[in-house]
Design a binder for these strands. Structure first.
Lengths: 125, 125
DNA sequence: TAACTGTACTATAACACTTAGTACAGCTTG
DNA sequence: CAAGCTGTACTAAGTGTTATAGTACAGTTA
């Protein structure tokens, strides 16, 4: 399904949550899609099932997944209500990131075009 | 100078590096400015000097600070050369972040205006 | 000289991350 | 029905990171 990066010093369960978040946010996976079982993905990545469980729990808490005992884990239905607190938090992150890009020498147009391309991605929300 | 957030689960030395990065990127601190000594800031924040030392070392490695034994630590001169590898890395982070903002319900205009306001900040680079 | 500066150690405690193993209740399929 | 799957919930152990405490040294400054 995907690979882990052991050079990356972030915890494995964080890497896994980000992979899924990416797959869902980009529309590669859609509402209701079944994702690999805890044991299945653990075997496929050659890591401990507990680590997958932790990742899935995180994803469920943040609203990306829905886990049903004895059935499996699925991509959660997309919330259509805007979340102001979350947006405000992300705005702060965005500011910090863009400042750093500017510091690294990124032109304003480079940043803007990146935004545009994301808002043109196929996924409808 | 600033405060630590013990609710934040990130390491203290990371919080400290981010504070300084923010102060430098926003132009609050400028090239050559003297920053508090290791012991001074440790006392002011009521934490161990080793933690400050670790933060300063990080900041020096990433080019934000310049530490001189027996003299002190200072804001480093701004590199004016664009760093393509760094920009590419930050572009990936930006994409991911903007996708998440879109997912959370942020309008395209909200994101764009944030970019504009950063590029209008007083600091000239 | 006295007080400061960054830097470099050792040692210790607390915590997070990961693995290993076991167990249980519920669903699905042969 | 039985076997095998599902998510979930534990305990236990090992490892690495974070933070603290304490000490020390060489160089600068007042």
């Amino acid at each position: 399904m995907f690979n882990l990066n052991y050079g990356d010093r972030r915890p494995l369960y964080i890497q896994i949550t980000e992979k899924f978040r990416e797959l869902i946010l980009t529309g590669v996976m859609n509402e209701g899609d079944k994702i690999p079982s805890v044991r299945e993905l653990a075997a496929s990545l050659a890591i401990n099932p507990n680590t997958i469980q932790k990742a899935y729990k995180e994803l469920e808490n943040s609203g990306f997944l829905l886990s049903v005992p004895a059935k499996g884990s699925f991509v959660a239905p997309v919330k259509r209500t805007a979340d102001p607190a979350k947006i405000e938090e992300l705005r702060r992150k965005l500011r910090s990131l863009v400042r750093e890009m500017r510091f690294a020498g990124a032109e304003r147009e480079v940043v803007l075009s990146e935004i545009e391309s994301v808002y043109k991605e196929e996924k409808e929300i």
